[in-house]
Computed example of a mutant assay.
Amino acid sequence: MTAMDERNLDREGRARRRKFVGAVVSIAGGGVLAGLGFAFAQARSGDAATQAGIMAGIGIGLMIGAAIMAWKLRPWDRRWRTESLASRRERLQSNRTQRLWVLPFISALFLVQGTRGLNEIVNGAGSWSDYVSASLPVVYAWVAAAAAMGWGPRAATERRFMEDELTLVLRARAIALAFPVLMAGVTVALGLALWRPPLAILALPFVLTAAGATAGIRFAWLDREAGQDG
């Protein structure tokens, strides 16, 4: 192993440790949020209890996502240090495909949960929990689209493993389908804005979630088909 390879491994090891610590902190934060939500829900009724339930749901979702990340980055698993370039490329691309399957469904779940909060905001009665729940599906839609586009904090360092001719073709086909979905959705939202503006606001998270999910699922599906053909 060359000195440069050793430095790259050390750099990746530090990045994995930072992410593992961040995941553990997120698990703890999600646990606190879920605990507070359940505690507040028992002591309140009506809309206040519903908002507390939303808080608990967000906390549980954060805990599950962070736990999965922490397990993948567990420091006692040292196999990544000795894997070949081909194995690493296969692992990273497989992880990307798994994320692209999961993220759209998480966004859809948060969309169902956030619709009520968005409705409260439109009616002028929104609280901080409504703003949080309404923003989560949009955030996850962006995350799904970013994963399909190859954007991310480690995109530059992992490009040689993640970017190849097949990836570029799959990405182009995925975006080619997601773009008409986005255009059609925004057109519908514009029509609603000219008719009933509050409905247009309610429609926009659905449009963004649909476009992000289309890009992610289409990419993952094409990657699966390519793997079967190979």
Rank of each mutant, 00 (worst) to 15 (best):
Q98L: 15
A34V: 04
A3Y: 07
D223W: 11
I121G: 02
L33G: 00
R154G: 01
F40A: 12
G114R: 06
S87A: 15
R224L: 15
R16Y: 14
W128H: 06
L36G: 02
R7Q: 10
M149H: 06
A211S: 10
R89N: 07
N8T: 08
V169K: 08
L73H: 05
I175L: 13
A176S: 12
R160Q: 13
R224C: 07
W142Y: 14
T167Y: 12
A144E: 01
D223R: 02
A134C: 08
S129E: 11
L204S: 02
A108S: 06
I54K: 04
Q93L: 14
V122K: 01
V102D: 01
V143C: 01
I68F: 10
D10W: 12
A39Q: 09
A48S: 07
I60E: 09
N119V: 03
R99I: 09
V21S: 00
G22I: 11
R218A: 15
W151F: 15
L103V: 11
I217N: 03
S133A: 15
F40C: 03
G35H: 05
G114Q: 09
A70Y: 01
V186D: 03
A41E: 14
R218E: 14
A15N: 12
G53V: 07
T157L: 12
S84W: 09
R81Q: 15
A148V: 15
A86I: 09
V24L: 14
M183K: 01
R7G: 00
S107C: 13
L85D: 14
I54D: 09
M55D: 03
V139W: 15
V24Q: 14
I54H: 10
S127M: 10
S87W: 12
